[in-house]
Nucleic acid binder design. Structure first.
Ligand SMILES: NC(=O)c1ccc[n+]([C@@H]2O[C@H](COP(=O)([O-])OP(=O)(O)OC[C@H]3O[C@@H](n4cnc5c(N)ncnc54)[C@H](O)[C@@H]3O)[C@@H](O)[C@H]2O)c1
Ligand SMILES: NC(=O)c1ccc[n+]([C@@H]2O[C@H](COP(=O)([O-])OP(=O)(O)OC[C@H]3O[C@@H](n4cnc5c(N)ncnc54)[C@H](O)[C@@H]3O)[C@@H](O)[C@H]2O)c1
Lengths: 230, 230
DNA sequence: AAGGCCTTGTGAACGAACGCACAAAGTCGA
DNA sequence: TCGACTTTGTGCGTTCGTTCACAAGGCCTT
């Protein structure tokens, strides 16, 4: 019962080279906004402009960018191209990331054909499904392989990121196979929790959760109004 | 750092009827886990078990549930059915939420056919697309209407939640129309920021961002390894 | 009836993130 | 060259969220 937590906790990763998780999550936002600005012909951008374009506030923008170093010019702003490059490098987008998508149903089809993948250096290296009827079908220029091929594709294509779009019941076993084959990052669309070894990264996207959060606030507003009226 | 605040500390959320945002975001997780437990025949659940089933830690579970009131039994745990009901009510899931999906392309198709909608009280009240070729097609039991019908569907079906799955370029104008027609919550899949009046709720899902965050950590691991070697 | 055992509910410490506000540092026009 | 103006970079107080740790409370066995 005594949690043996007597060890004086050291500042975790103080000396470490680390930018806050919350800032990392915003970098892709800036990158997207910068793409738009570059297309519009802007060569420099102030934190205020970038804030407006990415839906963040400007103090946060400046602090986030400061984690990458001091590349702004006071009185002027940041160089758009340079920022794009800095952020892309920080996020690891200057290299090619082969991705394997497992479960080519409705969602898998949409993902496989999604252009937002490729534009950031994510290459669909393979599509696999358990249903023999789907094997051979071509989606977004890539043919669907059978689930049996999972391991060989991961190895042949050096896949490090796997995307799971199977029913929830199959997700854990698929995940286990991905990890065993060498995948170290997983994006999970199935509505379930995945158990993975600690060194493997997992992120989940659950559309239903987003809707429920919206419903909560929606209800809150309605109740508030009704409450006043009642 | 002792709270030398002679000031009467405003208990923040004691008087107010407010659950922290972070807790709200986890309630759907618990709900999902409870569904599984109920199916497995469990009638009561401890915070420890629920934590394991929902991928959260148990202290957080207890604190989150405490915002709903004191419904647990010490030494035993929580009643599964009662919890399901409490959470569903808190999230507003005891009522029917008509949802309109705009943009029935690849992603829109997947969303329209997704079962995870209906199981939580979200009813697809309409599907609209700008492409005349798509109008009339039936997806998941609902026929696709033309974009022109947007306003009339929102009013006729009392839609308060809109889902945007159009290309980014069209998203803002679609959003404006939804809001003008009376929608007060928007779930946006297009990779762009949406401007809305302050009383309208917006959430965004950007798959590409999730991948970029994965890539960041993936790279970090690789660099760490390579760094030692270099 | 009493004591042991388990689990909740929560006060309090800790830590992460936010946003303000401003000095520092640069640009640009005169 | 200089001074007005603009915008960065960041120190700091505040707020939000997480985690610890334990008293309070209730069940069950004896
Ligand atoms: N459709 C959506 O909008 C949506 C949204 C959020 C989450 N999800 C989730 O994403 C997942 C997929 O949804 P969907 O609508 O595409 O379902 P789907 O039934 O259309 O597709 C599932 C696919 O996975 C394949 N599959 C089943 N078991 C497999 C296995 N062991 N290995 C490989 N492939 C396997 C099936 O053959 C099928 O092609 C589900 O878990 C769903 O809950 C879907
Ligand atoms: N496919 C994915 O996996 C994925 C993932 C994340 C985000 N997204 C985003 O979701 C959106 C849709 O993606 P998609 O793959 O389904 O694209 P898509 O091109 O297949 O579908 C877009 C649909 O929107 C319709 N549309 C265009 N303008 C419209 C308007 N003004 N009003 C109503 N409908 C209109 C088109 O007719 C088309 O049917 C895009 O913004 C995309 O970036 C897609």
């Amino acid at each position: 019962m005594p949690a043996a937590s007597g060890t004086p906790r050291p500042p975790a990763r103080s000396g470490e080279r680390g930018i806050p998780e919350a800032a990392v999550a915003r970098l892709p936002l800036y990158l997207r906004a910068l793409g738009g600005l570059a297309e519009a012909g802007e060569t420099t951008v102030s934190s205020e402009e970038l804030a407006a374009a990415s839906g963040v506030n400007s103090a946060k923008v400046r602090k986030d960018l400061s984690y990458l170093g001091s590349y702004g010019t006071r009185g002027v702003g940041y160089d758009v191209q340079q920022l794009v490059h800095l952020i892309a490098r920080e996020l690891g987008l200057t290299q090619d990331w082969p991705v394997l998508i497992v479960g080519i149903g409705n969602l898998g089809h949409a993902l496989a054909g999604y252009g937002g993948f490729a534009s950031r250096g994510f290459r669909v290296a393979g599509l696999v499904d358990a249903d023999p009827a789907r094997v051979g079908e071509e989606v977004g220029g890539v043919a669907v392989s059978h689930l049996d091929q999972l391991e060989s594709i991961v190895r042949a294509e050096q896949v490090s990121i796997g995307v799971i779009a199977t029913p929830a019941a199959a997700a854990q076993s698929v995940c286990d196979r991905l990890v065993a084959a060498g995948v170290t990052s997983v994006l999970n669309f199935a509505p379930c929790v995945l158990a993975v070894p600690p060194q493997v990264g997992v992120r989940k996207v659950d559309l239903s959760i987003e809707l429920q959060i919206l419903a909560f606030h929606e209800q809150r507003r309605n109740v508030a109004v009704a409450g006043v009226a009642t």
